[in-house]
Design a protein around this nucleic acid. Structure first.
Length: 649
RNA sequence: GGGCGGGUAGCUCAGCACGGAUAGAGCAUCACCCUCCUAAGGUGGGGGUCGUGGGUUCGAAUCCCACCCCGCCCGCCA
């Protein structure tokens, strides 16, 4: 007898028993919910109902008196997993599991389902596209952006284990001025071969080119302002000029050769800014030369991304080029359709989308969680020169996604909340309300450096690679201290999965809505509440099982009487519930928290009670089965957030 | 000005979707525990106006209202 969700089975029994008792003692009463929840302490049972507090007032009776009546009417003997119920705490009905049977059910289930345990399949599998990362191909992924792939990949893993058909997409935003800027710099340098990791190389070109272009532009503006006798304006420009001049000095010191070359080459151009704008237009028009150039730089940068992603075991099923949607006329087709709707208007030659009108006409305020008096700002769809904007193109992309999926989850920073809302409203305006309803913006907050925001244009960022390098390096120091006897390649291997695991865990563990200030200590934690801690616990369980070197054939689960053992069984039994909550509410951090809590309990158990040497053998076998269950659940939980579960470390 | 998100121990964070029993961890700090299955571990101590003020409720960190502080957004940028 096994169950894919042992705790839910217990809960169902409690619900049935309570409903029966309620009907029997108070037949006239109708309640909305049975208010069953986990009590704060295992001593109060494994489930408790606060129902009697709600009924007390209605019936003008004391809660505890009601609880006692319900308890005495409870048909306990009809249920296999309920040992007893008790009225306590002023009016709670506490349900106690029959731990012999409950432990048996739980540990047998985990043992048999093994690597599938916990991953309760949905009854309603759908095709889901998770779009994540989508860092512009201009510079390496920096630590602020790295939160995105870690969350996105965990979401994809979780949804997949839930039984959905998941596809992971990377949207390459190659349309826009910034791509032309880096391509321009690359061209000026004579399309050099990278002498380092490709994205790092491209990032340097981008930053230096940005800086030189910005200086060039500000200098002209300054002269113009001075000539026009606009002294306030000139002063403002001068201030920014000073900022960029100091950035230039910084860059010149850091990368003198590249800086010198670009300075000389860009200096040859009369008007670099205009060259960039031309390149941008040519690219949108699909002119072969521009296409080849921008694709070449972008591909170069993406090659670097792939290396990083390979390191952290993040994969994509599809790389979607924004430019393809422009060239294939998907964008213009969407625009044509939008123009026939009553929700767009032209103002000064610019096509605008009236988001507010959509919300009012289709009465979406309540549904979208907007205040009645809030007016959604309009969205510009097409510039006066006829070119499209980012969100416009994203509409075409979103429709393309819905040709392939029932649900779309976009992992995008919360600073884009308004744009994502407007995009959703465009879907409604086009009549695709089913799409809109299944369009999810998974928003996360920024990671900043102490004192300032990261800025790729200014070259102020810590790259994800640097963080990973440092993490692995520090992990290696730890391995040297703790396991000097291991062979060198094993040390390196451990340092790698520990360092990378630590970073992945740290970025998934905090609630995505919280802003994070990056510090090394924060990400490179090797103690409690970190991946290394959970990994260590897993390795520890493996070690016990290795030493035990036998299958627990004679386990008597009735002998697991210690509170620590029962808490462990209960936690293991609750994993499916946690998994379901994580998928339904899209909260990967629940998985990290769960893994940490389970590791905590297991370590306490480990320090307090012997496993292999426990007497009698039936108890020892039961503890071995428990250890194995913990091992399996830790492994499964870690796999959901992409962290290696090692057998040794 | 409007919108969104955040504000819980000295620091970093859980808990809030679904209101319940003494508000939990880690770091830091102090004192302990390896003849014993991995000490990246465990045990114990001290440390809290849950931003502020109202309200709803038998009961509020959790729900509602107002306000304060921090961040982001409100572009013919992405």
């Amino acid at each position: 007898m096994i169950s894919e969700n042992p705790f839910a089975k217990f809960r169902e029994e409690c619900e049935t028993a309570l409903a029966y008792a309620l009907k029997k003692t108070l037949p006239e009463i109708r309640v909305e919910a049975l208010s069953l929840s986990k009590p704060p302490n295992i001593d109060f049972g494994q489930l408790a109902s606060s129902l009697c507090f709600e009924l007390a007032k209605k019936l003008k009776q004391k809660p505890i008196a009601l609880a006692e009546r319900l308890v005495s009417a409870m048909p306990i003997s009809d249920f296999s997993l309920i040992e007893k119920t008790i009225a306590a705490g002023g009016g709670y009905v506490n349900f106690y599991a029959d731990f012999r049977k409950f432990s048996d059910l739980t540990l047998s289930s985990v043992g048999q389902l093994n690597s599938k345990y916990g991953f309760v399949r949905t009854d309603n599998p759908v095709r889901v596209i998770v779009e994540h990362t989508s860092v512009n191909p201009l510079h390496p992924i920096h630590i602020g952006q790295a939160r995105n792939p870690m969350l996105g990949d965990a979401l994809a893993r979780i949804l997949e284990c839930r039984g959905h058909i998941v596809s992971r997409h990377y949207y390459i935003d190659d349309v826009g001025r910034q791509s032309s800027v880096v391509a321009y710099g690359y061209l000026k340098l004579g399309k050099p071969k990278p002498d380092e990791k490709a994205d790092r190389f491209v990032g340097k070109i981008y930053t230096v080119t940005c800086c030189l272009i910005e200086l060039n532009r500000l200098k002209r503006e300054f002269e113009l302002a001075k000539a026009a006798l606009l002294s306030d304006e000139a002063a403002k420009i001068n201030k920014r000029l000073a900022e960029w001049t100091s950035i230039a000095a910084e860059l010149e010191e850091k990368i003198p050769t590249l800086f010198g070359k670009l300075l000389a080459k860009i200096g040859e151009d009369e008007n670099p800014e205009e060259e960039i704008n031309q390149l941008n237009r040519a690219y949108e028009d699909g002119e072969p030369e521009a296409k080849n150039l921008i694709r070449e730089v972008s591909e170069l940068c993406i090659q670097g991304f792939r290396e990083t992603q390979h390191r952290v075991e993040v994969q994509y099923d599809s790389w979607d080029w924004e430019s393809d949607f422009v060239w294939s006329n998907r964008v213009s087709k969407v625009l044509q359709k939008l123009k026939t709707s009553p929700f767009v208007y032209t103002e000064d030659g610019v096509l605008e989308f009236d988001a507010e009108k959509v919300v009012c006409t289709l009465k979406l305020k309540g549904k979208m969680g907007l205040r009645e008096n809030y007016e959604v700002p309009p969205l510009t769809l097409v510039r006066a020169d006829g070119t499209t904007l980012y969100t416009t193109r994203d509409v075409a992309y979103t429709l393309w996604k819905f040709d392939r999926a029932d649900r779309v989850v976009n992992v995008i920073g919360m600073e884009q909340s308004l744009a994502q809302l407007q995009l959703k409203l465009v879907l409604y305006a086009l009549g695709y309300s089913r799409y809109a309803d299944n369009f999810v913006h998974f928003a996360y907050n920024l990671i900043t450096l102490p004192g300032y925001k990261m800025s790729s244009r200014r070259g102020r960022y810590i790259s994800f690679d640097e963080v990973l390098d440092e993490a692995v390096e520090r992990a290696y120091e730890e391995v040297l201290k703790r396991s000097p006897q291991l062979p060198e390649d094993e040390k390196r291997d451990i340092a790698n999965f520990v360092g990378i695991g630590a970073v992945r865990y740290a970025l998934v563990d905090v609630d995505p809505s919280k802003p994070v200030i990056f510090t090394w200590d924060r990400v490179l934690n090797f103690e409690t509440n970190s991946a290394p801690y959970v990994q260590y616990t897993h390795a520890r369980a493996c070690s016990i099982l290795r030493k035990a070197s036998r299958k627990p054939r004679n386990a008597d689960f009735g002998l697991l009487k210690e509170k620590l053992e029962r808490e462990l069984v209960l936690t293991v039994a609750s994993f499916p519930d946690t998994f379901i909550a994580a998928t339904e509410y899209l909260k990967p951090n629940l998985i990290a928290d769960f893994a940490n809590a389970l590791a905590d309990k297991f370590n306490t158990f480990y320090n307090a009670l012997p496993v292999i040497k426990a007497e009698p053998k039936e108890l020892s076998d039961a503890r071995i089965a428990l250890t194995d269950a913990v091992r399996i659940v830790l492994h499964n939980a870690l796999s959901l957030i992409g962290v290696v579960a090692p057998e040794k470390m």
